[in-house]
Amino acid sequence: MEILGQFRREGLGRRENRRLGLIFLMALSFSMVLFSLFGARASVFEKAREALLDISEPVLSVLGSPIRWVDARFGDLSDYINVLDENKRLREENAELRAWMHEAITLQRQLDYFRGVLGVELPEPADYVDALVIGEVDTPFQRSMILNAGASQGIENGFAVVQDAGMVGHVVTTGKSASRILLLTDPSSRTPVVVEGAELEAILVGRSRGRPALTFFATRDPEGLAVGQRVVTSGAGGVLPRGIPIGEVTNISDDGVRVKLFANYAGTDFVRVVKYHFQPDLTQVEENDVDEAPQANDEADDEGGDE
């Protein structure tokens, strides 16, 4: 006679223990997913991520150097093969750029003159931190890079990261000596942008390996949108500065509007982190207006408090 399943108990060997272990661990990982979904970002996990980032920084730096060496040799080889075509192309580009340079100098003079006339006070130019890309996460649906600069170089979460051609992404995790940037192509990346020419505000949404898409606000029809228009950061929300070049509109269809990024991820070895804070501009206004307009000062104070 079986009492309280005693015969079944005998069958509880190593196999059953393993099965229980699996169920426990599966439950643990799913609860971790749920916890990350509903928990705040500044959780235990975030601390663990920062710590692991710092630990992995020297490892990735050491392991990455032979890769960079091999890449450079391959680069040399292709440069050698394409040297004639490349030289012709560069000469043409140089001539074009010279014309642009003279135009830019003329425009800069004009701008300085008008600024002088109007008495415009410009915000301080943004500071930059140069960093080396030591890691590039390559798993399905995740697009991020690891830089060899972190909080000790003054990097904070939210800072924009640019390359010579355009924006790459923004900082999401900051360790002491390393940081992680979420690329514009990551499916969870959302960047407030403006389409130049059409003057349309939109959100750039990452699409993993595909080109990022533009999402427009429902209240406005995307009129005047054309292929080839430049997309830059809009600065809405105050996290990113305005006017960082991102890409150009390439495809307008029923599926949506797609943007071809200026940044070339496969060739990104060095990047620049833009140290930008929205706050200092407000405090500058407060200081300047303190004598003339006390009311305006109060308002500015309130806004500052809300930030």
Partner: peptide
């Protein structure tokens, strides 16, 4: 799986559950 989750910066538990 957990190590991969933390190092790739994704949601913690995704790769752990998938590998298990």
């Amino acid at each position: 799986g957990l190590l991969q989750d933390f190092l790739t910066g994704g949601t913690v538990g995704v790769w752990a559950s998938v590998y298990l």
